[in-house]
């Protein structure tokens, strides 16, 4: 359906209006984003390559994006250093991870 429109980047939008443009391949590490962006299903997100998260704020989403890149970067490496995550966001990140199925 949207085969031709597949762009290399997708835009992730937080509930407070921050937009993160990240590589599609990195974004698709998250199950929820992958499904939403699946061109075969043809949801609004897939057509627009843009996904808005009503329950994630900019801070959390930034961390999520960092992690997605971090994951992609170290996909094949061993003995990777743990990502540096701000303590105060841990709980929220945990819930985001569950939600996004990372």
């Amino acid at each position: 359906m949207a085969e031709t429109k597949i762009s290399e980047y997708v835009t992730l939008v937080s509930n407070d209006g921050y937009e993160f443009k990240i590589l599609r391949s990195a974004a698709c590490v998250a199950g929820t984003i992958r499904k939403a962006m699946d061109p075969a299903s043809g949801f609004k997100e897939a057509i627009e390559s843009r996904m808005t998260f009503e329950n994630l704020n900019g801070l959390v989403l930034e961390q999520v994006c960092l992690y997605l890149y971090y994951h992609q970067k170290h996909a094949e490496a061993r003995d990777v250093p743990d990502p540096d995550v701000p303590q105060e966001l841990l709980l929220e990140l945990l819930m985001a991870a569950e939600y996004l199925q990372v």
Partner: peptide, 20 residues
């Protein structure tokens, strides 16, 4: 390419993930 790179110093109000 992460938009909003400027570090947000202001901590957003803590709300649960499930709004209402």
């Amino acid at each position: 390419m992460i938009a909003g790179r400027g570090r947000q110093r202001i901590k957003p109000p803590r709300r649960g993930l499930h709004g209402g």
